[in-house]
Design a protein around this nucleic acid. Structure first.
Lengths: 216, 216
DNA sequence: ACCTGAACACCGTTCAAGT
DNA sequence: ACCTGAACACCGTTCAAGT
């Protein structure tokens, strides 16, 4: 009798989480609400509680959905140094793909299965490459922190597009309090603009790898 | 005539921000609301709009209040390597002092005056110590990202108190999804527990400094 | 100049009721 | 098993009104 109900696909936890991530990508984290996400899925907000514990569970689920996207290269890439670079680059890429949701990665206390598979994968690659296991774990921790930290910091502070002087100045003056003394505005410009972000990112990795080679 | 109104101190932007930071320290970021913060200050919530643009302005102000606490050592500490260590340690200390508010440091796009004074101070120390200005700025960016990234990551994932096996296991199993396969639980234990956090933090700095010495 | 009452649309969450 | 209506306390924000 009713033609309109024909194509109602069933909801599922996975579908809810993917929709939440898309919504945050488009409208920002602050705009996400149970009501609106429900509407997006053709359902009332309370229905989401059938698939998710609540708003907290939803945010944890978004972290899960992000980690699930990270691909693990099937073939080793050069020696263990190459693996470290691949690891840290994929973390930075993840943050870049979801700038609005990325802060959740460093504030929600969850380790989704995909994250563990990621760590497991690279730990094996590093030990296969000749590192002692304890050394591999320490390096993993340090390098992961750097990758996330740098990616989030560049997102909030550093200028990303092709910089001319006017754009740089506006970028900085939007972040700096009104009435900041000139010498501090100059400092802000120095820190936040005029650098190649990829080169700047690699600098930290290069230094750590070189330090590792130098120090035994 | 009225005795009770005697000791009503006037509100001010600064007092509001300090109270907000204290409130978040005690009750967490999610619990902060205009209504409740107003009550804490003996005032209705809407009165806060006289001192702060709105909730967003309040959050930006919390970042400001945190940066304002960072002390700059009056005397140089050793060579420029020592300055790098001091810089990065004070960022980590800042995060540790305000674990609940700290994520704001990497998600609110503001650079308060105190932050700029911090960067200005250490840039001068590094160039005084013999680094070229461009080199000093690059090192500052890299090392700041590491400091914030590591401190936030250890907050969300790593076990901080004196670890025995039972505590470690519970710490990890609260963060890992139910039904995670054994070998991945083992990976989580490996990554998240059983390390001296201070030594682990220093590792990244040591590597970068050694890399700098080795590479010219 | 600063605070309040009243009001608004919106939010997370519950639960009994529908199918 | 999943969705909804009705309802709740709470939220950010506005504005005219008080002092």
């Amino acid at each position: 009798m009713s033609v309109t109900t024909a194509t109602r696909e069933p909801l599922s936890r996975e579908r809810v989480l993917r929709a939440a991530l898309v919504y945050v990508d488009e409208h920002g984290l602050a705009a996400l609400s149970m009501h609106k996400l429900g509407a997006e899925l053709g359902v009332k907000g309370m229905s989401l509680y059938n698939h998710v514990t609540g708003k907290d569970g939803l945010l944890d689920g978004i972290v899960e959905a992000m980690w699930a996207e990270v691909a693990l290269p099937a073939e080793p890439v050069g020696d263990w140094r190459g693996e470290v670079r691949a690891l840290v680059r994929s973390l930075r890429d993840l943050v870049h793909r979801h700038p609005a949701a990325a802060p959740l990665l460093l504030s929600r206390p969850v380790m989704p299965t995909s994250a563990l598979e990621f760590y497991d994968h690279y730990l094996r690659r590093l030990t296969d490459g000749g590192l002692r296991q304890q050394r591999a774990v320490e390096l993993l921790r340090t390098v992961t922190a750097y990758g996330f930290g740098f990616a989030l910091a560049e997102l909030t502070w550093l200028e990303t597009d092709s910089p001319d002087d006017l754009r740089s100045f506006r970028h900085v003056s939007e972040r700096v309090p009104a009435g900041t003394p000139d010498h501090l505005v100059r400092t802000a410009l120095l820190v936040c603009t005029g650098c190649d972000m990829n080169a700047q990112f690699d600098l930290g990795i290069d230094l750590m790898l070189r330090g590792l080679d130098a120090g035994g």
